[in-house]
Design a protein around this nucleic acid. Sequence first.
DNA 1: CGTCGCATTGATATCGCTCAAATCCGGTGG
DNA 2: CCACCGGATTTGAGCGATATCAATGCGACG
Lengths: 209, 209
Amino acid sequence: MREVPEQQVIATGLPAALSVAGTVISCDAGVTVFHAGQPARAVYFLVSGSVRLVRYGRAGEEVSLHEARPGEFFAEASLDSDCYHCDAIANESSELLQFLAPAMRNHLASDVTLSREWMALLARQLRTARTRVERLSLKNAAERIRHLLYSEGRGDRCEVTLPGTFKELARELGLSHEALYRTLATMVREGIIEREGMTLRFKESASRI
Amino acid sequence: MREVPEQQVIATGLPAALSVAGTVISCDAGVTVFHAGQPARAVYFLVSGSVRLVRYGRAGEEVSLHEARPGEFFAEASLDSDCYHCDAIANESSELLQFLAPAMRNHLASDVTLSREWMALLARQLRTARTRVERLSLKNAAERIRHLLYSEGRGDRCEVTLPGTFKELARELGLSHEALYRTLATMVREGIIEREGMTLRFKESASRI
DNA sequence: CGTCGCATTGATATCGCTCAAATCCGGTGG
DNA sequence: CCACCGGATTTGAGCGATATCAATGCGACG
């Protein structure tokens, strides 16, 4: 994890007011950006790569809380929290912008546009998280996949192209990867969905919820 | 759902700046405050009673997204959204404060203190939702109950007193109520937890995570 | 007192997890 | 160019946990 303070980066999705306030950080796959329990010093913006936020179950297994994608902030909720509540680990070689919490709070207090954007961002993340709660509350695998397509899909056939692997999707859906593969295969066999590589869609125009 | 515009209410947990800006609404058990798909006209603050936010599965069954408790806002995420994304239904006779979205946006733009409180509130809700995601990602019922105690419990024995019924808790945990009762009974029998009416706690001082 | 919904426990079926093994694919080194 | 390696993908078999259906008790409420 090496810091490159003077570099100038235009990052898509970054509020204009923040374009010069961040510290660029590059980190390799597997590097931990921060640990749960550490004082929450900064908020991060993912420029490129991918970072996962995880906690650990009693058996030591990872539980995925969130997968940050380029153009997203993460650890935003830590702005008014004493310490981080999860680990942040780079899935691949990634570039981050780091915004120290005190500076960020100042910006938010003085810039109305930024604070509006920030509230919108938090609200969006909140909706996303609640959608995921809803999905995980469904009892069976096929329903979770349907729900994924309905809530994330584009167009009337609810097309989704996976950003990662099927194993990652399985974790996101709270399933073992075997269960996911099997359920997908069954749904394709039954003519419910189509699959082309990493793209999924309904076979028929979506019969609503 | 009857509106009582002139009433003056001191509501605990409500930011001071909003204490005079809301419309008091009283509604009986079962009344729908808003429907999914309706234009998002307002944000609500629950003064007393309880309101659940739900969507509906394919079989028409309710899927609980959130249970608002007194002192909480709900539909906060709808401030920058065109329409509501779920139904809000009163579980019991409840009192709400309604804040129309345009007025709310004005307040947020002009009052830095309020906007800071609002961001903190969104961040808190976000953390809560992510904790719930984490909980639902656990594979078995006992782990989910442990997780609930660890993340919501008070004191070194992680004591939790349920705000609602065990059936509601079961929905919150993504379990059937039968599975919840059985798992609780087993955990009590095995000396892992204690149960006194609606209060749960670990038998031993919490062995961390 | 009757009814309704929660609480509780039993029986059974099913779904998804676990272990296992084979294949595929991209990358790496010779 | 090819052999090899690791991780993703895919399918099989068996088991265990949870859902589902069912029945009963119990307390609140009209």
